[in-house]
Write a protein that binds this DNA or RNA. Structure first.
Length: 295
DNA sequence: GTCCAGGTCATCG
DNA sequence: CGATGACATGGA
């Protein structure tokens, strides 16, 4: 049996700009897209539920298959999609900031783009480790192999995609997998460290949310070996939509800032800190728009 | 062949 | 402390 619901869209929202970001790499396996729909999955009560998100004029239409214990499935899906696509944020305070800073005006052409997140903290941290130090194409290849070896396959409306592995599954990572899949020793160790932290309950999204300051949240994450400042801030930005989470050291970020003439020395952290003072409270949104400017 | 990609850690001086 | 090298691989 099929079920559906809709989400009314906020004012500043452009589905196709978001879709372009989602379509940036063909190796992406956690969701699939076509011209107006996203196909993906959400885990609820230990069950992976595939569903679709279709863009209509004024709303998004969610579709999924009904099963026995899906009482609160609808609410969970709506909350998840709102979080993933950051639909609740009021962007009206952001665009004046871009308009006021001369070199940021080019970013106004991305109006309606939302900060596409990674609602699962575990996945966000693993993805940050996979992306460390290598180019994005290679990172997507590595993620693809990891997910297909340890994740869950889904099929919905004729599309095939995957759900990210659990921490318990990634505890199984070993040298056999490493050697045949071109992972470095470092990445495997780091992924295992993250998996351990989650399996033991030492790190969780709930725990992170209960901390009262950015510094405390950053500290909890960087206690995992393999999660440095860049990875912690990346995860805080993509998972908690933390406004002040700036992924310092990010080559894409510095490249974009340099392209727009906002910094003159790509290695000068001070210049980057100074720049971000001009977009206070919107640091992560600006970062996301800067990344988008590179696509 | 060299250098750099959505970095991090261990090991120096 | 700050500097340096290793890490796996592919593309420019």
């Amino acid at each position: 049996m099929n079920a559906k619901t809709t989400i009314t869209l906020p004012r500043e929202f452009d589905f196709y700009k978001c879709l372009k970001f989602l379509q940036r790499n063909e190796e992406e396996c956690l969701f699939k897209t076509d011209h107006d729909t996203i196909y993906t999955s959400l885990k609820i009560h230990e069950e992976v539920v595939p569903f679709s998100i279709k863009a209509l004029d004024q709303e998004l239409e969610l579709n999924w298959s009904i099963n026995e214990n899906s009482e609160d499935l609808k609410d969970a899906l709506v909350i998840h999609v709102k979080e993933w696509l950051d639909l609740e944020r009021d962007l009206n305070a952001f665009y004046p900031k871009l308009d006021e800073t001369p070199n940021l005006k080019p970013l106004l052409r991305f109006k309606g783009l939302r900060l596409i997140g990674i609602p699962s903290l575990f996945e966000a941290l693993c993805w940050s480790v996979i992306g460390q130090q290598i180019n994005l194409n290679f990172a997507y290849k590595l993620k693809n192999r990891l997910v297909k070896a340890y994740g869950t396959q889904c099929e919905y409306q004729g599309k095939v995609f995957w759900h990210f592995p659990t921490p318990e599954r990634l505890l199984e990572l070993d040298d056999t997998f490493r050697e045949s899949n071109q992972y470095s020793r470092g990445k495997i160790n780091y992924l295992r460290n993250i998996a351990e932290a989650f399996a033991e309950g030492y790190v969780s999204k709930e725990k992170l949310k209960s901390l009262s300051s950015f510094e405390e949240r950053q500290r909890l994450l960087t206690q995992i070996k393999g999660i440095g400042e860049w990875s912690a801030n990346y995860a805080l930005m993509k998972c908690l939509h933390e406004p002040q989470a700036i992924p310092f050291g990010d080559t894409g970020l510095t490249q974009a800032l340099f392209n727009l003439g906002l910094i003159t020395d790509r290695k000068d952290r001070y210049q980057i800190e100074e720049f971000f003072k001009s977009v206070e409270e919107w640091e992560s949104y600006t970062t996301f728009y800067l990344w988008y400017s590179l696509m």
